[in-house]
Design a protein around this nucleic acid. Structure first.
Length: 357
DNA sequence: AAACCGGGGCA
DNA sequence: TGCCCAGGTTT
């Protein structure tokens, strides 16, 4: 072995040690880190898809309490699962988690034992499969999420965008090198945690980073320059009017069709699209049935998803007769205090919170 | 590869 | 308001 290659190998071994030493000392106490059982690790990884740790934490504890095992999850009604997920967003994750639980139980109740088997489950992509397999099975597979992408792009001072295949391959190779041979799951979690706590998108705290001496971006004094930005899609703006119909302490919600492309089967507030103008009473009537009387505006909320931004006007409304809405989509009256276990869209909670203030 | 998924939190 | 987050799936 040449001297240079030998040094590189020693540096790598040192980086792995530094990473684990930092993790052993600084890792957060998170509920899903209390065991390495596949079920809680799997649930946590799905909840953490596109979701911050502190947001997911209370949902995880409540979810595990309601569905303590894969058997409990599989035998639960999908409605109950969605109800516990309500407020977390991206509800397809809950549907896929539930469907995967039924697949696992139907196949005998044992969890996958390889990355490839995990990948076959709905809702488990290459990130999640690698994360679970490294934590539960000690498989040496890099779990590359947005945090890892940023940390490694900075370590390498990577010129290419990680969203291009060349850039992504470079990140994957480096991330793999950083994994300990005995504790790859802790290595993966350590890089992610550094991304969240130290190697932040803006104002990274390089001086307390265990990898600072190995980081080319830090050495160049411009860590924020990485990762190289890809093309950003323009945000589409759209106006919407949402109606709150209250009667006897209950609010009127409608159920989205079960085969709907988005938010299938969730309960939502009645809405119509377009510029707010006269005539929206007819539009509500056409969409939901009944004769509508639209009252005063109660406020505005913004509801953004990925590359879409809804500007929503919240109005009060009344119906001349409750049973007239039976013509439209499935309708239901819900007491505000009972909504906790009901699978509603995120917007329902947002609008009702607005009315409380 | 790119679009889409119709979330949520924070500066 | 823009940006980011422990991404997955479809086209």
């Amino acid at each position: 072995m040449s001297e240079m290659a030998e040094n590189a190998g020693e540096n790598l071994a040192e980086q792995r040690r530094d990473l684990l030493a930092w993790f052993d000392e600084q890792q957060r106490d998170l509920p899903w880190r209390r065991s390495r059982e596949p079920y809680p690790v799997w649930v946590s990884e799905v909840m953490l898809q596109q979701t911050r740790v502190e947001t997911a934490r209370p949902y995880f504890e409540s979810f595990i309490e309601s569905f303590p095992s894969v058997e409990a999850l599989a035998s639960a009604d999908v409605e109950a699962v969605l109800g516990k997920w309500s407020g977390l967003g991206y509800y397809q994750r809950a549907r896929r988690l539930h469907a995967a639980a039924r697949l696992i139980v139907a196949a005998g109740g044992s969890f996958p034992t390889t990355v490839e088997e995990w990948l076959e489950l709905p809702g488990v992509g290459r990130y999640t499969a690698a994360a679970i397999a490294s934590i539960v099975l000690a498989v040496r597979e890099p779990a590359i999420d947005g945090n890892v992408m940023r940390v490694v792009a900075r370590l390498l001072a990577l010129k290419e965008s990680p969203k291009k295949s060349a850039g992504w391959r470079a990140i994957e190779a480096k991330a793999r090198e950083l994994l300990d041979f005995d504790r790859p799951g802790d290595s993966n979690q350590a890089i992610m945690e550094i991304g969240a706590a130290i190697c932040r998108p803006r104002r990274p705290r390089c001086s307390i980073c265990p990898l600072e001496k190995d980081c080319l971006a830090a050495a160049a004094g411009e860590p924020e320059r990485y990762p190289a930005a890809g093309r950003k899609a323009p945000v589409l703006r759209q106006r919407r009017r949402v109606a709150v119909v209250e009667s006897g302490g209950s609010v009127l919600l409608f159920r989205r069709p079960g085969d709907s492309a988005r938010m299938a089967g969730l309960w939502e507030l009645p809405w119509i699209d377009g510029e707010p103008k006269e005539g929206s009473e007819e539009a509500f009537g056409q969409r939901y049935g009944g004769r509508w009387k639209v009252g005063p505006q109660r406020g505005r909320v913004r509801h953004g998803v990925t590359n879409r931004s809804f500007q929503i006007e919240v109005v009060e409304a009344k119906l001349s007769s409750d049973n007239e809405v039976a013509e439209g989509p499935e309708a239901g009256w819900f007491r505000r205090s009972d909504l906790a276990g009901v699978p509603t869209t995120g917007l329902v909670g947002k609008v009702l919170r607005l009315l409380d203030t």
